[in-house]
Design a protein around this nucleic acid. Structure first.
Length: 272
DNA sequence: TAAATTTGACCACC
DNA sequence: GGTGGTCAAATTTA
């Protein structure tokens, strides 16, 4: 869809907000599609470059465009006072922390490490890091990279704890990190889900870029899911004890929702 | 047994 | 002093 065209055709007030919600929805779907596609490209090389690497770049570009459009729309709508209230999860700006490149050398004692930290200031809070990117998704763990959890905190005023992850390949000097925060079940979300099948949404905030080699493919364990899809019976896959849940929170309903909704959403978009 | 996760403590920032 | 990000020992899991 041509972004300029969509902006020109931006209808006033409430329709604008609907369009923004659609764009947000599109953002989620692209993330889920990304999580689904990346595992299917192991070892595929295109013109000497990893297909996965290209795919990641393309997905990031699409998401970047989407975020730009949403923020532009939001700015227009807010400035015109179209409708009160903010939608979507605000990024935790207060907690934007800049990572400090402090490395504790091997053999340092705990005291030495503590001293090292105090001198260099490792635990600095991120200060308005413009390089951070936030996304709202049903499948926060499937973004094509491998992460290791290093902390969890209860955040003031939040219903759910925030989890802290860093790239598994930190020894390769890859200092990418992300935080995952489950969203509260707000009214707008409740309305969009049918009773009894509310799907948890997560705000994922990424800090820094991955500098590690591309490990993104082999680690996401969706082949099991794909093989289940071959059976054309997702319900069986979801309940069968033969299919080990690769990670406890693999959100199969959310993935199904991608397939269910993708046709509808894309048709809507093309009508525009 | 190695790798991953949990959790209390520490520390910087507001 | 409160809060949020990180560390690292303890614990769990594969």
């Amino acid at each position: 869809m041509d972004i300029k065209s969509s902006l020109i055709m931006l209808p006033p007030c409430s329709h604008g907000w609907e369009m923004m919600e659609t764009m947000r929805r599109q953002q989620e779907l692209v993330m889920q599609l990304r999580a689904f596609v990346l595992p299917l490209l192991p070892g595929v090389i295109v013109d000497g470059t990893s297909a996965a690497e290209i795919a990641v770049q393309l997905f990031d570009d699409v998401i970047g465009c989407n975020i730009g459009v949403v923020s532009t729309l939001e700015g227009c709508l807010v400035s015109t006072g179209a409708r009160g209230g903010s939608s979507g999860e605000p990024v935790d700006n207060k907690s934007l922390v800049r990572k400090n490149s402090c490395h504790v050398t091997e053999g340092e004692t705990t005291d030495e490490q503590a001293r090292h930290r105090s001198v260099v200031g490792q635990k600095r809070r991120r200060k308005n890091d413009k390089r951070s990117r936030s996304l709202v998704t049903h499948v926060p763990h499937y973004d094509g990279h491998q992460w290791r959890k290093y902390g969890q905190k209860n955040i003031n005023g939040r219903q759910h704890p925030r989890s802290y992850y860093r790239c598994t390949y930190r020894e390769q000097n890859c200092f990418a990190t992300k935080t995952i925060q489950q969203q509260e079940q707000i009214d707008s979300i409740r309305r969009s889900a049918t009773p009894g099948e509310e799907i948890a949404k997560y705000t994922v905030v990424y800090y820094g870029e991955h500098t590690c080699k591309d490990h993104s493919i082999s680690i996401v364990q969706l082949p099991q899911l794909v093989s289940c899809m071959d059976l054309q019976n997702m319900e069986i896959a979801q309940t069968s004890s033969d299919v080990q849940d690769p990670e406890a929170d693999l959100d199969l309903p959310a993935l199904l929702e991608v397939f269910d909704n993708s046709v509808i959403d894309w048709e809507d978009i093309w009508k525009i």
